[in-house]
Design a protein around this nucleic acid. Sequence first.
DNA 1: GTGAAAGCGCTAACAC
DNA 2: GTGTTAGCGCTTTCAC
Lengths: 350, 350
Amino acid sequence: MKKESVTIRHVAQRAGVSVTTVSNVLNGNLRHVGEATRTAVRQAMDDLNYRPNAIARSMVRQTTATIGLVMSEIQNPVLVPVLDGVAEVLAAEGFRLVLAEADNVEAEATAIETLREQQVAGLLFMLLSYRYPAEHLQKLHGDGLPFVLLNRAVNDRSLNQVLFDDTGAALMATRHLLGLGHSRIGLISGSLQTIPLRQSAHNRWLGWRQALEGQNLEPDESWIFDGGYTFEGGYRAAQEFLARRKTVANPPTALFVANDAMAVGVLKAVQEAGVKVPSDLALVAIGDPPFAAYTYPALTTVALPVQDAGRRAAHLLLDWIRNGQPDRAQQITLNCSLVVRETCGGNLHR
Amino acid sequence: MKKESVTIRHVAQRAGVSVTTVSNVLNGNLRHVGEATRTAVRQAMDDLNYRPNAIARSMVRQTTATIGLVMSEIQNPVLVPVLDGVAEVLAAEGFRLVLAEADNVEAEATAIETLREQQVAGLLFMLLSYRYPAEHLQKLHGDGLPFVLLNRAVNDRSLNQVLFDDTGAALMATRHLLGLGHSRIGLISGSLQTIPLRQSAHNRWLGWRQALEGQNLEPDESWIFDGGYTFEGGYRAAQEFLARRKTVANPPTALFVANDAMAVGVLKAVQEAGVKVPSDLALVAIGDPPFAAYTYPALTTVALPVQDAGRRAAHLLLDWIRNGQPDRAQQITLNCSLVVRETCGGNLHR
DNA sequence: GTGAAAGCGCTAACAC
DNA sequence: GTGTTAGCGCTTTCAC
């Protein structure tokens, strides 16, 4: 990189024009540039192997075409399609994406600071934790920096948010079981008690409750097992469930599992115990990642439009950046859809 | 963002010093700055809520603390831990990460161009395709821009690379089967025939061959089924395998499956067919993602140190950036390790 | 110890 | 249509 870089000035010189002209052809400001001049400039650029310096451009324009993405856990596979969705629209719109991981509030604050120093045009927050403080977001808001929240409800209607309808998804999942004739339905929950707590875990629990109550069934909290959203947690929770199941006359005939990773663990524990799915025990989950169709039996699950969430969030942000702050902040809640596969089987009483 | 931003000049004014002094405390150049001055400046920064402009700094320094990551498929879960490893060391070393997705050669060229316009200090390539042209990489090399290749062997010892020992992993996997007494071992391969072709698919096939040949066994190419590295492909390939298996007197007693995703599909197909793993059919795979321990039965697989690969690549790149181009390019090949779980069972003949 | 000033590569008035 | 020029916010000689 210690090569003398070729600048707009060199191009101008070689083409025998001024820097303004070069700048004009660079930016498509062609009404001011004659045909011949244009080609001459282009030629000179090619000859010199000229590459415009985006840093210098940002410097004078006082803005960048870069947005910062701060995410809580890059490792979480759920977020990968979101990232992909974001990357897709940003690339299409000519924006760059700079990544910052932040697992806790301080790290998040630091990330925001760093990103702002980079003069990002906007910020995207993609986090999973529950009851994450929102003060520094308010500060962003006050500074007029565009940002949108992805999958983190902060109960503030002044913030732009893209959310999954977790409660609705859980409702849908549980109702599917109900519709099949199940009336005793256990819950393998997300991080309800384990740390970090999750917004979605709470909402999915809520959906389960509501579905049961809607049928005048008493949600039996003793059939809730916290699986912490992991394969391992689901496996363990299922083992607990199975142990308790044997001690009781009328155990649940179905399980609502709050995500697909846990469902994989549940499936393993259940199969090891010789319990048959769906005949002995029906299972619904939430998420629908690629593997959901290839478990044995294949998971019936409520699909979350994760990639779409990324796209929507990116569009929301870009709108704000380009057209100024919208009059009202938007809370976009994404709808989910049930994907029926094999883990629920047919009607229980048929 | 249309607020008047507070600059180093404002700080200087408020602290009653020159911009030079402010710059000096900003950069820890404290030998030239008196104690009192320093605190005054710091105070002024706080008061004004000053945030240094990294763009302006890059402008004058003629370099950024940003590295570009160009990856072929963000969606591929295998790459997520790599990304995490990269992000981890870059964050620790004070570098930013800008992401660019590129699924084909032209997209890659464009991504490189964009990233270079952003004046990235270096480039990381994380791609899966096979026989990807390397000319534009040579150009980078000629321009002296630091870059390292992750998981893309280009057979050019002048390039810095971090690679998985795919052949070794396949050898290890197949030998494990051999050691258990299996002598007829089929292969569910990666994208050997499907597009895009994969370097790793070829190498894993090679490892399988070599293991067999090492025991003076003839690798029977008619027991190779291309699963394209996907759940779906693995499932289909296994169905083909099972169909053929029934038509033959001495079918393979084991399968080397070139990655874990396919192994999940294989497991499903096999279970649907009522074939028992490992008693009727043993399975080894490669990868060891989180779900590998939670399939039923749990996958015996050769673990790839993916996160470590990301870290190593990042370090290699940072070294180059900071200490100049190394005398010799490094080809780091990462070792793999067998994780024995349940899909192979015990010795065949015991 | 501290300050004045040049200039990084580019854009955008404004003048011609 | 094209050129001149003044910065964008910062770092960095070089004087004092």
